[in-house]
């Protein structure tokens, strides 16, 4: 994984060129990603959708430098994923919020400033403003077990945003929430996206969620994990819940379902 890939432009935040990932397990070699070529535009909102085992999470982890791809090149904002990670250019939101239960809400939010050289980052967001943005003003000193699942995920989003990342990677962040909370969190996320202009990669199992949130949906096929199709979602921006009742929304969801059925 080295330098720039040819044809890099400022409009692309992330480029994957022929990225492959194989794991050696007890049952032999598993190809999680097979020659993935894809670009994500700066400031865009892309959902990664696909059946279980299609490598959505693996793709996210390869981009986040949590896994080293076994082949291909990745360009993150003109840097290697490693440089982007250590430079705090990316925020990661986990499915289970991954808050440290012994740290208060505010201490969880500022954790990125306390470890891994985070203390030297001067251009970071104000944690109190972030908590206000995610609707948790006044809960600074609460412990995670005093919060609901949705509130915990809000804290983890605030934590991911504390270093003003240019890329936000979200791994099924609302998958464990009930539907009402999930809808609310979707609206919150769109608002946060509009306010921060961050490039977002969003892994999800839910077709309506992908359609509602995204400018484009990357459909992945499984065994081996590969790009099936990049589907643009041409719904008006900014969106509110009324868009879900439109024929265009239903058509887009229907199209995605048909693509997924072929996977």
């Amino acid at each position: 994984m080295t330098t720039l890939i040819d044809g890099h432009t400022q409009t692309d935040a992330i480029r994957l060129a022929d990225v492959s990932m194989t794991f050696d397990s007890d049952r032999g070699r598993v190809t999680a990603l097979d020659g993935v070529n894809v670009e994500f535009a700066r400031g865009g909102f892309t959902s990664l959708l696909g059946p279980s085992g299609c490598g959505k999470s693996t793709l996210l982890r390869v981009v986040a430098d949590l896994l080293q791809p076994t082949g291909g090149q990745i360009d993150m904002l003109g840097q290697t994923p490693h440089a982007a990670r250590t430079g705090r250019k990316l925020g990661f939101v986990f499915q289970d919020a991954a808050l440290l239960p012994w740290r208060s809400v505010i201490d969880n939010v500022v954790l990125p400033l306390k470890v891994g050289g985070g203390a030297s980052i001067s251009d970071h967001a104000d944690p109190h403003e972030l908590l206000e943005m995610v609707g948790l003003a006044g809960r600074e000193s609460a412990l995670p077990h005093e919060l609901s699942g949705g509130q915990r995920q809000r804290v983890s989003i605030a934590r991911a945003l504390i270093c003003k990342p240019q890329v936000l990677l979200m791994d099924e962040p609302f998958g464990a929430l009930d539907e009402i909370t999930r809808d609310r969190m979707n609206d919150e996320l769109l608002r946060i996206w509009a306010a921060t202009g961050t490039t977002i990669l969003f892994v999800t199992h839910s077709i309506p969620e992908a359609v509602y949130l995204s400018q484009q949906v990357l459909v992945l096929a499984s065994r081996p994990g590969r790009v099936k199709e990049m589907v643009p979602i041409d719904l008006p921006q900014p969106r509110d819940r009324s868009v879900r009742d439109t024929a265009e929304f239903t058509a887009a969801a229907g199209y995605l379902r048909r693509v997924l059925e072929e996977c």
């Binding site: 982890r61 949590l66 990661f92 986990f94 499915q95 991954a98 440290l100 954790l111 470890v115 050289g117």
Partner: peptide, 19 residues
């Protein structure tokens, strides 16, 4: 996920231990 979080944050083993 907590360990992955510490890795995303480039935390050292020492920091991971104490935090």
């Amino acid at each position: 996920q907590a360990m992955e979080l510490m890795k995303v944050l480039s935390a050292s083993r020492r920091e991971t231990f104490f935090k």
